[in-house]
Design a protein around this nucleic acid. Sequence first.
DNA 1: CGTCGATATGTTAGTGACTAACATTCTGAC
DNA 2: GTCAGAATGTTAGTCACTAACATATCGACG
Lengths: 187, 187
Amino acid sequence: MRRSQATRQRLQTVAIDLFTEKGFDHVTVEEIAAAAGVSHMTFYRNFPTKEAVVLDDPYDPVVAAAVTEQDRELPALERVRRGVLDAFGRLQEPEDRTVRQKIRLASGHPGLRARVWENNLRTEEVVVEALTATGIPRLEAAVAAGAVLGALTAALFDWAGDEVEGPLGERIELALGLLVSSEVTGW
Amino acid sequence: MRRSQATRQRLQTVAIDLFTEKGFDHVTVEEIAAAAGVSHMTFYRNFPTKEAVVLDDPYDPVVAAAVTEQDRELPALERVRRGVLDAFGRLQEPEDRTVRQKIRLASGHPGLRARVWENNLRTEEVVVEALTATGIPRLEAAVAAGAVLGALTAALFDWAGDEVEGPLGERIELALGLLVSSEVTGW
DNA sequence: CGTCGATATGTTAGTGACTAACATTCTGAC
DNA sequence: GTCAGAATGTTAGTCACTAACATATCGACG
């Protein structure tokens, strides 16, 4: 079981490098597996699809949990906003390079982009559940979750783009800060 | 060319019926083609992918155009909102049954749902372009487009669900109306 | 009518993602 | 050292999708 973790890590690193070099569509699973020294079946036992290698992120459940933990006196939007910030502060991944590579790949490929939204939708559902459980109307919860996650995704894609300076964490704080100010000014 | 239009229509009707009956994943393209009395190549000449049969909707470009036509004095959100309403009022499709079938299929299947978001993203981009061209800041434009399109999609999926009464148009007006009131009340 | 060019369709053969079933090796606990 | 279970490999298959080339259909035009 220790062994499989190493294999999984190797597969992911190799895959992302190949995708970055040759483009997602021009790398076969067979190729990835060979480069990692395993068969294609081992690839599929570690990742359900070729896309999953890029999209695998542990953020979603953590975000939902962090939102749940916020002060219940706060308005919905603010709870989601702080939850997201807490979550990212909590598991700040050290390897900025890989993260940026992944986000860049995802933002530049239609199929991958579509999956990102699919992931967002799932997070949104969990967040909405968490909010409505404390008495917030469903529509308000949905709008809050949608707005914050939308802004977050925009920030991620933006950060992955050409030479945006500064670490990811800062960028996220900035984007979510803008969300608040645009609310205050009545848009 | 008259002929191909009929073939395309037949393929779509047959496909959606089969999907509804057996589930998207349990219908092969070969099967659809056979049921429509053509070969699988004719299918792919009419639709780029299997998913496209369900997702094919002419709304996106029309929405962008309608937003462009709105009064430039209005705030961004209101322009997008009215644009969407105008667009749907303009090309109200008569065949409610097929529309509902399509939306229901899309909302109930992960891969299709992902594509819906992908479509939304494209519409969003065009709308944002239209708004920024009249001097609205990019972020504000993005938020307005994202919020309205998000609400619209939610309304569509909701309407497709179990026995929601009333026609689609009403449902959309209701959802977008809620968007305005939640803005006015400051959430 | 007959020819001809464009459009619509078919056939065949292939690639590549993904799955199922079964065989093999490897690792850790006893 | 043995043995169960985890990790991996092999093989064969399905299905979405593409390329290349062949055929058919239809409308104009002489």
